[in-house]
């Protein structure tokens, strides 16, 4: 599979589809840069907590220290290790992004596929549902839900974010499904007497897989941003640390006035970098999957 990547530019035309995509993927600067940034932070989230020499929430360090050899990212006003909080927060962000993204993608796909494929009254009802959830400022709903949950975990937060962020994905997938449904190969499958389920997941979904991957990437990034915003208002997980909570603690405890930049710069920078890398990767993938855009 990797043998084609090193050969001449004329090679991809003769090779199979998968190799062609890999060929263009590795030559797409946006995709490569985005993926590198994303992987660096992902590795930080996986292995960082093992490197951390302190617990994220214990008060065992001298308070308010700037970054040093002992405390790589400094310490908080209360004597907590910022590096440890940071890497554990990174882990939380990725977990929320993945779980929230998956939840939203599953709902969006189910609604989009069935509305687009079945049409008629099912489409009308699902479309109405999509429109209602689309118009509701979901952030306000999350606010009320989270405020009433006295014990909140990462999983619940991710699930609620997923439950409210699917509508635009459903809409986009519905439109794609709609156009694929009128194609001949779907008609053939219908004539063969295949079930709706098989047609959707065997015929339609594979033909828009690139689109689904891109949708998931955007949902992933959106979930991370929403979680950070909720956490910052003070409605984050009650049992762990997150990047949004770090910013909340720092602002609430006068880190701005005291100039303790090491407390609030890393968490925001990480979120910006992760979400930004996802967006840039998305544009890169678009260029890889869509031959029309490659010339640009």
């Amino acid at each position: 599979m990797t043998s084609t990547t090193g050969s001449s530019p004329a090679a991809p035309a003769a090779k199979s589809g998968r190799n062609e995509i890999l060929y263009f993927a590795l030559r797409n600067t946006k995709l490569v840069i985005g993926a590198i940034v994303f992987i660096v932070f992902l590795l930080g989230a996986i292995f960082g907590p093992m490197l951390a020499t302190h617990e994220p929430l214990t008060f065992d360090a001298p308070p308010g220290l700037p970054p040093s050899a002992d405390y790589w990212f400094g310490t908080t006003l209360f004597g907590q290790d910022v590096f440890s909080q940071f890497v554990h927060g990174l882990r939380s962000s990725f977990i929320v992004g993945a779980l929230g993204g998956i939840t939203a993608a599953v709902i969006g796909m189910l609604v989009g596929f069935f509305a687009g494929y079945r049409g008629g009254i099912i489409d009308e009802v699902l479309n109405m549902l999509t429109n209602v959830v689309l118009v509701i400022p979901t952030f306000a709903v999350l606010l009320v839900v989270a405020a009433y949950l006295s014990v909140r975990g990462l999983g619940t937060e991710a699930m609620f974010i997923g439950l409210t962020s699917w509508p635009w994905a459903a809409r986009a997938i519905r439109a794609q499904t709609f156009s694929l449904t009128s194609r001949d190969f779907v008609g053939m499958a219908r004539l063969n007497g295949e079930s709706t389920f098989r047609i959707i997941f065997g015929e339609i979904a594979p033909n828009m897989s690139s689109y689904l991957v891109m949708t998931f990437i955007l949902l992933f990034g959106g979930a991370i941003l929403t979680a950070a915003t909720l956490d910052f208002i003070g409605l984050g997980p009650t049992d762990s640390i997150s990047l949004g909570l770090m910013m909340n603690y720092s602002v609430m405890n006068a880190a701005l006035q005291l100039g303790m930049w090491w407390w609030f710069v890393p968490p925001g920078l990480a979120i910006t970098a992760i979400v930004g890398s996802l967006y840039v990767m998305n544009v890169g993938l678009d260029e890889v999957f869509n031959p029309k855009l490659r010339a640009l």
């Binding site: 910052f232 701005l256 006035q257 979120i271 930004g276 996802l278 544009v283």
Partner: peptide, 29 residues
Amino acid sequence: GYLLTATPYMWLGILLAWVLGSSLGWFPL
């Protein structure tokens, strides 16, 4: 543009408050 859309609202606010408000003292915090 991508950098700005990926930035969480509160973080840009925090940065502006820190640089222009706290450090330089040009604006109230």
